[in-house]
Every structure is written in structure tokens, then in C-alpha cells.
Design a protein around this nucleic acid. Structure first.
Length: 587
RNA sequence: GGGGCCGUAGCUCAAUUGGUUAGAGUACCGGACUGUCGAUCCGGUGGUUGCGGGUUCGAGUCCCGUCGGCCUCGCCA
């Protein structure tokens, strides 16, 4: 080692020690006769002093931000009154006797310690500088801790870590695949895995009854603040289990993670709610349970009123549902309400946003209140549990639109009105998801999770009669209103698998073509099995209190899926394309 | 593919809402200074206002297009 200590470990105990430190120049304070340098590495900062006796003042005054240097000197207590309480090494300083500039830095576009964060494009272009920032280091350390804790936990529980292929085969279902052309087989392509789903089921057939993997997954879809084209899952699968076993295993992980990472005691079992209840009460399959403001269904009252917007929505098979914000009516100007209205219209296709304010006398006021009788207004107020000063928002629309719009409104108001402490952590399960959802555009059924998800035993007779009512043995882990993981018990019976394929419109030939290897495997002694995948990037976001998935990943992509540092994706040589049998087209 | 916000000195921002020579802090360069820790003080360099077009006597400001970053709807079994 070029150094004897790190920049974060020297204390009063080290006084009079001769030490060698290496690191980056964080800042310099040049007093002419003496120069002070804060030397930084990932462990901390240490003040390095170049006094006149060192003979190094001239060299030291030429040091600039991010130069990499090595210094040798003795540790001394700082003079009375010059102790720096802000840093752990603030009681001591290094009196330099030798200075070696290991590498001079160009003037950086920004420095890791500057108070104002530069624009994100610049941070991504110079990611190596951005990663020197304390906050990025803390996050990557947190991420490492989370992954290590997971690995350790599953190792203790007899899981076997198995790597599955990155080069796989495209399956048209689900997200868009990233494709990799084959040089050997022209016109044929590998697909990068959206998840190791099929492989892990094969591992169960192979008798490795507890599989786990930290798996990179790829989906070529548009990005969001919490979505990257490549992301990491903690993927696991277990044999001879039911949903309770998988949920229980993850419960234990959550408890341990909360304790080790946040020193938080979590009571088990984690609460569970059905999908139907979540949609009814919160309009979302991953409700944030840190605050109330639940959705309240007023359809039965609304269907009888004169006001066509309300009654018409119900008679057309829709609903009228609302949420209530307690005691903050005065905070909602017409302008603010108009903004919310525009938002639910633009983003969720709502036809409008009705609202009522509870006046001092307890009556409801609204631009539309003249369309309601006093009795009807009273009924709404009673159903909503309205009190003086409350404001209520209603969506009169299809069930789906009411869910989307109100869930989004609830989430937004919850944050804007500070209805919860952002530092709180809430863990829960949402279970019994629908097996199928109907694709209106293509007029066919889709698997809500994937086509290998097992239906509940009692729902089997509904294949022919009401597939929309069938519920899957599925479970999503929800943390603070985010889906932090999801899994299912799989079908291990080929007769049931056939019925699912049939309903999904996948004929036997197509099924063979796409999943033949899995169907074959399931016929050679497949144990009952199921599993789950946890979104590691999101766990880091949630445990780190971060708003942005890019801050959880060392080298993330922009919204257009580009890497600003490497400038990927990039063009390739004609020769490379020729070898692959690929021609590009101009638009 | 749709909606929205943003782009001015290396960086973070301002520019009296279309009006004189585009400013400040910081960084950088030079000078002074032996106890600072956001060092201080003095001086200085630094601009195709993302790019292209248009409107206008006049555009950083308005309009159109385009590139890039972010948020979002669709999409993400």
C-alpha cells in the first residue's frame, strides 16, 4: 500500500505517529506562509498542513481541486481553538514533510464537495466525479449492504445461488425485448432476459428446491423516475411451498433488513390486503398505507341525482367516488383546483374533477352544488364524513379511470399536505390479484402476471364462466406505496396450464414454439413451486429515502436510455454489421 | 406517440416581462497574507444566451422547427 492510513481514521491517539496518506485534494486554503489542504478519500477528510518548516509551501500552493497526492508527515494535535468539529478527524492534522503529486487533475467541471448540485446531464457525463460525492458513496454503500444482507439471509436459509443466461430467447409476451443478433445464425436473435422466470422454474424441476440470484433484467420500455431499462432483481424460487411460505420467507427478510439498515423493529406478519380491497379503498394495487384519505364510493347516492355528470356516470356502468382532505379547504384556491382538474384530465383521461367545500354552517359549496338538493348534499356529506373546513374531490367516470385519477390525486395530496412523515416505513402485502385482464384494443385476455401463474383452487370452475373474476395465487410486497416485489405460485399441472393457454388464445403449437422446453420439463416430475422477485433498485430508493432510481445506480441511463459517459448506444463498423447479416435503414 | 418544465460564463443562477456594452456568486489566472477549515483582501480572463429559421426598427425574452436533460400519460405479462 502506498498509504499507512485512510483519510478518515486518524484521531488524538495517533498524535506523534508518522503516517502516509493518499487521496484527492478536496480544498486548499493558501495563507502565503502556510497552506492547508483537506485531503479526501472515501473514508473521510484529513487536514494536511504545509508550514514554512516543511519547505513545501510553494508546491502546496500549486495544488488544486481533485489532484491526487501522497503526503508523509507526523500527526499533531491542532492548536487550541482550531479543532474542526465538523469532521471526525478534526482534532488532529498532518504536518507534512514530503509531498508527491501522484496525478494532477484537470480543472473539474464541478467538485464533489460543492454546495450546489450541477445539472444531472453533467453529473452523468462526468459520473466518476459525481460518484465521489458523499451522498452517492452513501447510497452505493447502502446498496451493497442491502444486497449483502439479502445474500446472507438466503444463504442461511439454504438457498442456492445459480446464474442463468443473459443471452436467451425472445418471448413476445410482456415487455419489449432487447435483442442481440446472432453472428452464427443470421436472421436469428437472442433476447436479454426480462427476468429469469423460466429458468428458475426449470431449476425447481431439476430439484434445486431453493434458488436465489441477484439477476440483471432488461426491458426496452420508456423510462420513469423509478424505471431503468436494465435493473436488478433479487430473484428466488422455492419448491413444495404455498403462498404463505414465500410470504413468510420475505417477511423475515424485511424484518431483518429494517433492523440492520434502519435499526427499525418491524412486527410480523406483515399485514395483507386483497387486490380487490386495495382497489376499492385506495384505487391502486400498491397503496401507500402511511396515511388515510381513502376512496369513498358514493355511486348509490349519485345515481339518483339530477346532475347528469354524476347520475350518467353510474348509469353507464361507472362509479362516483371521492376523497376528502380534512380542514384544508382554505388552502385550495380556484387556481389550484383548476390545476388539479387539468392534471386528472390530461394524465388519466378523467372528464373532470368535481369538488365540494364544507362551509361554516356545515353546508356543501361547489360550482355544481346548485344541481343537488339539500338532502342529496347532506347524504354526500354524511357518506364522506365531512366536517367544517374539509374539501372533497370526486371523479364520476369508469371504475378504471376513477381508480387511476383518485389514486394519483390521493398520492399527490398526501405529499403536498404532509399527511405522513416521509421517513416512516410501511411494509405490506397485496394478494389475490386477478388472473386475467381484458385487452380492449386487441379484444383478448392477457395474463396479469405471467401465463404460468396458478389460479386459486376454488376459482378453477370459472375458466369458462367468468375468467375476469378468477384470482391468482399472487402476492406483491408494497413499501410506502411502491411495488417492491412480486411473485406467484406457479402452475405445475399441465391440464391447468393448457386451460390458461387456451383462454389467452395461445394455441398448442404456439405454446410449444415459445415455451416448449418449460412444458416438456413440467412433464418430468415438476414439484409444486412458487417464488418472488424483489426490485433491488427500488429497495435502495426506499431504504435510502431517494426520489430517483438513477441515484441508486452507479452508471444509469437517461430517459432516452443513453449513457452520457460512454455515449452508448453508439454506431458500429460496417464490418460488424456484415458479419451479423444486418443492414440498417434510413428513415 | 401525447402533455408539461428546463437549456444564458467551466459551474449555480440573474437580466425590471421586446430596448443601451448580458450581470452576480463560485471556479480559473495573477498578486498579498503563518492557523485556516465556504479562509480573507486586491486585480484579471472568461459569453455563437443549445442549434437552425422567422416576426420586429430592435430578440436571451415572442413564434416555428430541431437537439439535449427532467417529470408524466400511453407502455412496463
Amino acid at each position: 500500500m502506498l498509504r499507512t492510513h485512510t483519510c478518515g481514521e486518524l484521531r488524538a491517539d495517533n498524535i506523534d505517529d508518522t503516517v502516509t496518506l493518499c487521496g484527492w485534494v478536496d480544498s486548499t486554503r493558501d495563507h502565503g506562509g502556510a497552506v492547508f489542504v483537506d485531503l479526501r478519500d472515501r473514508y473521510g477528510k484529513t487536514q494536511v498542513v504545509f508550514g514554512p518548516e516543511s519547505g513545501l509551501v510553494e508546491e502546496a500552493s500549486a495544488l488544486r481541486s481533485e489532484d491526487v497526492i501522497k503526503v508523509i508527515g507526523s500527526i499533531a494535535a491542532r492548536p487550541e481553538g482550531t479543532v474542526n468539529e465538523k469532521i471526525d478527524t478534526g482534532a488532529v492534522e498532518l504536518r507534512t514533510s514530503e509531498l508527491e503529486v501522484l496525478n494532477k487533475s484537470k480543472t473539474p467541471p464541478f467538485t464533489p464537495s460543492q454546495q450546489e448540485l450541477p445539472g444531472e446531464d453533467l453529473r452523468l457525463k462526468y459520473r466518476y466525479l459525481d460518484l465521489r460525492r458523499q451522498q452517492m458513496q452513501d447510497t452505493l454503500v447502502l446498496r451493497s449492504k442491502i444486497v449483502n444482507t439479502m445474500r446472507q439471509y438466503f444463504d442461511e436459509n439454504d438457498f442456492i445461488d445459480v446464474e442463468t443466461p443473459i443471452l436467451g430467447r425472445s418471448t413476445p409476451e410482456g415487455a419489449r425485448d432487447y435483442l442481440v443478433p446472432s453472428r452464427v445464425h443470421h436472421k436469428h436473435f437472442y433476447a436479454l432476459p426480462q427476468s429469469p422466470q423460466l429458468y428458475k422454474q426449470i431449476m425447481m424441476v431439476a430439484g434445486y428446491d431453493r434458488y436465489v440470484q441477484v439477476a440483471r433484467c432488461f426491458r426496452d420500455e420508456d423510462l420513469r423516475a423509478d424505471r431503468q431499462p436494465e435493473f436488478t432483481q433479487l430473484d428466488l424460487e422455492m419448491s413444495f411451498v404455498d403462498a404463505d411460505d414465500v410470504i413468510g420467507m420475505i417477511d423475515g427478510l424485511v424484518q431483518r433488513m429494517a433492523k440492520e439498515v434502519l435499526d427499525l423493529d418491524v412486527q410480523l406478519p406483515l399485514p395483507r390486503m386483497t387486490y380487490d380491497e386495495a382497489m376499492e379503498r385506495f384505487g391502486h394495487d400498491a397503496p401507500d398505507l402511511r396515511f388515510g384519505m381513502e376512496l369513498i364510493n358514493c355511486s348509490d347516492i349519485a345515481e339518483k341525482v339530477e346532475f347528469r355528470v354524476f347520475s350518467g356516470a353510474v348509469s353507464n356502468g361507472g362509479v362516483v367516488r371521492g376523497i376528502k382532505a380534512d380542514g384544508v379547504a382554505a388552502d385550495f384556491s380556484r387556481k389550484r383546483i383548476d390545476e388539479l382538474t387539468e392534471w386528472v384530465k390530461q394524465d388519466f383521461g378523467a372528464k373532470g374533477l368535481a369538488w365540494f367545500r364544507v362551509e361554516e354552517d356545515g353546508s356543501l359549496w361547489s360550482p355544481i352544488s346548485k344541481n343537488f338538493s339539500d338532502e342529496e348534499l347532506a347524504a354526500i356529506a354524511e357518506r364522506m364524513g365531512a366536517n367544517v373546513g374539509d374539501i372533497m374531490f370526486f371523479i364520476a367516470d369508469s371504475w378504471e379511470v376513477s381508480c387511476k385519477a383518485l389514486a394519483a390525486l390521493r398520492k399527490r395530496l398526501g405529499a403536498e399536505l404532509s399527511l405522513y412523515d416521509p421517513a416512516t416505513m410501511n411494509f405490506s402485502w397485496v394478494i389475490e390479484f386477478p388472473m386475467f385482464e381484458f385487452d380492449e384494443e386487441e379484444q383478448r385476455w392477457n395474463a396479469m402476471h405471467h401465463p404460468f401463474t396458478a389460479p386459486r383452487e376454488q376459482d378453477m370452475p370459472m375458466f369458462e364462466t367468468e375468467p375476469h373474476s378468477m384470482r391468482a395465487i399472487a402476492y406483491d410486497l408494497v413499501i410506502n406505496g411502491s411495488e417492491a416485489g412480486g411473485g406467484t405460485i406457479r402452475i405445475h399441472d399441465s391440464a391447468i396450464q393448457s386451460k390458461v393457454f387456451e383462454l389467452l388464445g395461445i394455441d398448442a403449437e404456439t405454446a410449444r414454439d415459445r415455451f416448449g422446453f418449460l412444458l416438456d420439463a413440467l412433464q418430468y416430475g415438476a414439484p409444486p413451486h412458487g417464488g418472488i422477485a424483489l426490485g433491488i433498485d427500488r429497495w435502495v430508493m426506499l431504504f435510502g429515502g431517494l426520489e430517483n432510481i438513477r441515484d441508486c445506480i452507479a452508471f444509469p441511463k437517461t430517459q432516452k436510455a443513453a449513457d452520457l459517459m460512454t455515449e452508448a448506444p453508439g454506431g458500429v463498423d460496417k464490418r460488424q454489421l456484415r458479419e451479423l447479416g444486418i443492414k440498417t435503414v434510413d428513415e
